[in-house]
Amino acid sequence: MPKSLFWARTDTAGSEHVVFDDGAGLGAQGVVLAVDPIPYTCRYRLTVGPDWATSRLEVEAEGAGWQRSVRLEPAGDRWRVTAAEQGDLDAALRAAGHPAAGLPGLDDPDRLAGAVDVDLGGSPLFNTLPVRRLGLAPAATTTSPPGAAEPGAAHRITVAWVQVPSLMVLPAEQVYTALGPGRVRFASETFTTELDVDPGGWVLRYPGLAERIAPR
C-alpha cells in the first residue's frame, strides 16, 4: 500500500506532501509549496533502487509567468542532466527584489562524478536517501559495513543538489554522522544541524526547515 508524509515548513510559509512506496527501494511523487524567495510550486518524481541509490529524478517548478523542469539520471560513471524553461524566472525574481537565479540544469555533468544521491532544496524527504543507503536508520536494509550506524560514525558523500526554484544543479559535499537512535547530524560546508528521524529514516524534524505533521 502507498504511504504518505506531510511536512510544514518552519523557515517560511510552505509545506511538502509526498506519496511513496518503499517496498523495494523507493518510488515517490511529491509537491513542495513555498513563498520564498517568490511563491512557487515544485513537483517531483523520484525513483531509487533497492540499494537506495538514485536511478531517476524529475522536477518541475512553476510560478507566475515562468516554469522550469530538470531531469537527472545516472548513466554509467556520469549523470545525464536535461533541463527546460518557459517564461522568465529571473525577471520575476528581480521584480521581487532578488538576484537572478541563473539557468536550470548543469553545464558540465562531469562535475557530478562520484555522486550517488540527489538532494532537492527545501525537501526533508531527500535526507532519507543517504540515511537509508548508509544504514543509519534501524529499519535500513543496505550492504553498509558493520558499525556504519554506531554513534560517531561519519560518512562524507557527494550529492547532486537541485536548487529550488531555479532548478540549477550543483555538486555538494555533505557529511552524515550517526548520533544514536533517532538522531543524525547533517553537515554541508559551514551548515550543520541534527535531524530527528523515525526508525525508517524518515525525517521528523529538520531544525530551521521543516517539521513532520502526523495525520489526525
Rank of each mutant, 00 (worst) to 15 (best):
G122S: 11
N127Y: 07
A214D: 11
D21V: 10
W202A: 03
H17I: 11
D108N: 11
R9L: 09
E189M: 07
F186A: 04
P181D: 04
P199H: 00
D119L: 10
R9M: 10
P109K: 05
E150A: 15
V116T: 15
G201N: 05
A137E: 08
E85P: 03
V81F: 00
G76T: 07
G65V: 05
T142I: 01
Y40S: 11
T10P: 06
D198K: 04
Q86W: 13
T128C: 09
R133F: 12
V197R: 05
T143N: 11
P37E: 05
W161Y: 15
G121T: 11
E73F: 05
L167A: 03
D36I: 03
S15N: 14
R43N: 08
A140F: 12
P37H: 03
A75H: 11
P39M: 07
P138T: 02
G102N: 12
G182N: 01
L112H: 09
L125N: 07
D110F: 00
A139L: 13
A61F: 08
R111M: 14
P39H: 08
V184A: 02
G208V: 02
Q86V: 05
M168N: 08
V81Q: 06
A137D: 09
G182A: 02
L112R: 12
T47W: 00
V203S: 03
F6P: 02
A53R: 14
G30V: 12
R216A: 15
G76D: 06
P130R: 09
L170Q: 10
A101H: 01
R80N: 09
R183D: 02
L93M: 09
G121Y: 04
P99A: 07
T193F: 04
V35R: 09
V59D: 01
D51A: 14
L89D: 06
L195N: 06
L129C: 06
P171N: 03
W52H: 13
S55A: 10
A8S: 07
L204A: 03
H155W: 03
S55K: 11
R56Y: 09
A8R: 14
G180T: 09
W161H: 10
T193Y: 04
R56W: 07
D119G: 01
L106N: 10
V116E: 15
P124Q: 08
A137G: 06
Y44G: 11
A64Y: 08
A24Y: 11
A160G: 07
P165D: 03
A187Q: 14
L103D: 04
S55Y: 00
E189R: 15
I213Y: 01
Q67A: 15
L57D: 04
G49S: 11
G180P: 10
R45L: 09
C42G: 10
A187D: 07
P99E: 09
Q67Y: 00
Y44S: 13
L209C: 06
A75W: 09
A154R: 15
Q29R: 15
F20K: 12
F191Q: 13
G105W: 06
S15W: 14
H98C: 03
D51H: 08
Q29W: 10
A95G: 00
A91F: 05
P2N: 14
L120W: 10
V118A: 08
R43W: 05
T158F: 00
V32C: 11
L33C: 07
A53V: 13
N127P: 08
P181A: 01
L125W: 08
T10W: 09
Q29P: 00
A148F: 10
P39F: 08
G122N: 05
